[in-house]
Structures are given as C-alpha cells and as structure tokens.
Computed example of a mutant assay.
Amino acid sequence: MEESIIRIRASDLEEVIQILRIYQSEIITNYPRKRALTRVKAHELINRYLNKCLEIETLAIQFDCSVTEIKQLFLEENIVIAGNKIPKEKPAKIFWRRKKRRSGLPEKCW
C-alpha cells in the first residue's frame, strides 16, 4: 500500500470542512447506513443454522447481511462453524489381477 501526504493550508481547511459537512447530509440520504443484526434476527439466524443445517452463504442471502457478520456472530456466541459440504474422497483403488492358469490340466479337455 502506498502512503500519500496531503498538505492543506490553514485558510483552506475551514472551507474543506464546510464542503464536507454539506456532502455529509447528502451521503446519508443517498446511502443509508445498514443496520446491524438485531438480537431477534440473530437468535433466529442461530436457530436456522443449528436446527436446519443451512450454509452460511444461504443465511447471508436470507437475512441480507454479509458472511463475515454471521461468522463474527457465531464466534461471539461460541458456535462452531462447520462446512455442510461432504468432502470428496478419492475412490478406492481397484487392483486388477490376472487369472491364474490351472496347473496340471491340459488347456482343452476333449
């Protein structure tokens, strides 16, 4: 990450602060702050995860929040996060054997 330094004169600083205050009200109206998970929503989310065994991605879509928020909630509540996907195991190796010839008998008995 590259650091940069911005130098502003003291006379211009007041003007910059006033402009930022004007834009602050517009930013709040255009981009409302996303509410955090309420206790009721969090309790329902935990119940669905533990009882219905839903994936975290599915819960994030249902409750309109990010996966990191859900993981943070589970860590706070001391809930173990486990994947629901079955791990793909390698298939058992098949050993091919040749048929042994019978000893002592001729190949064709007529």
Rank of each mutant, 00 (worst) to 15 (best):
S4G: 11
I86G: 08
K34D: 06
E15M: 09
T58P: 00
S25T: 15
T68F: 09
N84R: 15
Q72I: 10
C109M: 07
I61S: 03
M1W: 11
A82C: 12
L37Q: 03
I19G: 03
I28Q: 09
E77P: 01
N78I: 04
C65M: 06
C109A: 09
I8H: 01
E26R: 00
K108V: 15
R33A: 13
D64F: 00
V67G: 04
K41S: 12
H43G: 07
S11P: 07
E57M: 01
T68L: 09
L45Y: 02
E77D: 09
L59S: 00
I28G: 00
C65A: 02
K85C: 10
R21F: 08
T68M: 12
I8D: 00
N47H: 15
K88P: 01
V80E: 08
R21H: 04
L105M: 12
E76C: 12
I27S: 01
E69Q: 11
L59Q: 03
P32Q: 02
R35C: 05
P87C: 09
T68I: 09
S66P: 06
E44N: 07
R39V: 15
L54C: 11
K71Y: 05
E26T: 05
I22W: 03
K34Y: 13
P106V: 03
R9T: 15
D12K: 07
I19P: 01
N84H: 15
S103T: 15
L73R: 03
G104P: 04
E69Y: 07
E76L: 04
I86A: 14
Q62E: 07
L20A: 14
L59T: 03
I61W: 04
T58R: 00
R21E: 13
I61P: 02
E107I: 02
R97S: 11
I94L: 04
E26W: 02
Q72T: 14
E77Q: 15
E14T: 12
I27G: 00
E76I: 10
E44T: 12
L13M: 08
I6E: 08
K108F: 14
K108C: 08
N84V: 11
T38K: 11
W110E: 10
L37M: 07
R35H: 01
R21L: 15
E44A: 07
H43R: 08
F74Y: 05
